[in-house]
Design a protein around this nucleic acid. Structure first.
Lengths: 213, 213
DNA sequence: AGCTCCAGAACGAACGCTTGTTAGGCGCGG
DNA sequence: CCGCGCCTAACAAGCGTTCGTTCTGGAGCT
């Protein structure tokens, strides 16, 4: 069970893939990162593609598990905030893997690509459901559900491009800032709307303060 | 000035780079796309990297020119909407180039990367300025300017991942839907006058799927 | 008009190098 | 003393690019 080496290799590959991209990364670089010779990797892995697949599948698992923990009985605004926290937490906690997941999943063999695409669509549907509920119950404006979900996910999926894990911005603050923007909008009129925020804070226990500013 | 061949090569490279990525694309593939032998390309181009640079620089030019045309004297909400239209129009009109610009600019030589990064920062600053003006004048809520700008740009930059140019969703509708969401937010509250023109329709007809993702 | 001549475009083969991966042998811990 | 982990060496394939050559079309001269 303590397959230390395989884990080291995979996470080194995550780092390298995330910085340079899958195709620009050499197996010799991966080997060097774990202080091995290139050929020695193959005592632990089946091939370069298998490493990529492991990274991508694990990332997909992570995102799915995270959104599955979002309570479905809360009010839509709280659920959206919770989903955003969950999503961004996964990104921040697995930054290299997330980058690889978003950028290099298309380089898997076609059958695996289809698989990942399906999981991705299901994931997106979960977000659409939250927004659709909000629209149906009149809490949300009658927006285009698909586009609204895509706005949220697009904004989130770009985060790995600029997020600095060592910076002062912790994942939950970022998530709360983003959900506050998406929920309340830029236009003034400070809505008393963050009644939903309280619910979100309860549904996802948290130790850090959420302060947008 | 009728350098037809060079143009053909560049746009074939745009297509291939955008679908497969820069490093996964072969010069022989590029050559095949314009019905040439690989070696023949070098009568027109300096090298693979030079083609990438041309694509990236042109895309950066396009985005900068677009936002430069956004009037600076309008009200912040109208300016934000205009910026969104400008940005998304460029994406839709140069979909392959935009994808390459967003994904593969890091594969340029370090000096060029720094250059592009600088231009990118300046571009982002233009968006921040719009939001900062809105906050300063009280039209926008007192949000974190940097995060709000990043939300907008993150959402927009992910668009090439899913946008279908043949679909029913035209760029301006998409831009208006996104800016309506970012300006007004999801939470109900009837739509006040956004400083912008007509197309502020909150309810947008269900767009057909035609997902290439 | 007919001729020469050259520049550019394209070919096809080859270059040197790197890629992912495999094979065989060495050494050390259990 | 077995077997696992690792190394060295090598492999075939593919990479971006170069090179000498061929072909072609039009300008310039007579």
């Amino acid at each position: 069970m303590q397959n230390t080496r395989l884990l080291e290799i995979t996470s080194a590959a995550e780092r390298l893939f995330s910085h340079q991209g899958y195709h620009a990364t050499t197996m010799r670089q991966v080997a060097g990162a774990v202080e091995l010779q290139a050929g020695s990797l193959y005592a632990h892995i089946a091939g370069k593609e298998a490493v990529l697949e492991a990274i991508v599948v694990r990332a997909a698992d992570e995102f799915e598990a995270a959104i599955a923990r979002v309570p479905t009985d809360a009010a839509p605004p709280a659920r959206l905030r919770a989903a955003m926290r969950a999503h961004i937490r996964v990104i921040a906690a697995n930054l290299p893997a997330a980058k690889v997941y978003f950028h290099d999943w298309q380089h898997l063999p076609p059958s695996r690509v289809a698989e990942v695409r399906a999981r991705r669509d299901a994931y997106e549907a979960a977000w659409q459901a939250i927004i659709a509920d909000g629209v149906a119950s009149g809490v949300f404006a009658p927006v285009d559900v698909r586009l609204a979900a895509r706005l949220c996910l697009s904004a989130c999926n770009w985060i790995p491009q600029w997020y600095d894990p060592g910076g002062a911005l912790d994942p939950d603050s970022l998530a709360d800032a983003f959900s506050a923007l998406v929920l309340g909008g830029l236009l003034g009129r400070d809505q008393g709307a963050d009644g939903g925020a309280a619910a979100a804070d309860r549904s996802i226990p948290d130790h850090s303060r959420s302060d947008t500013r």
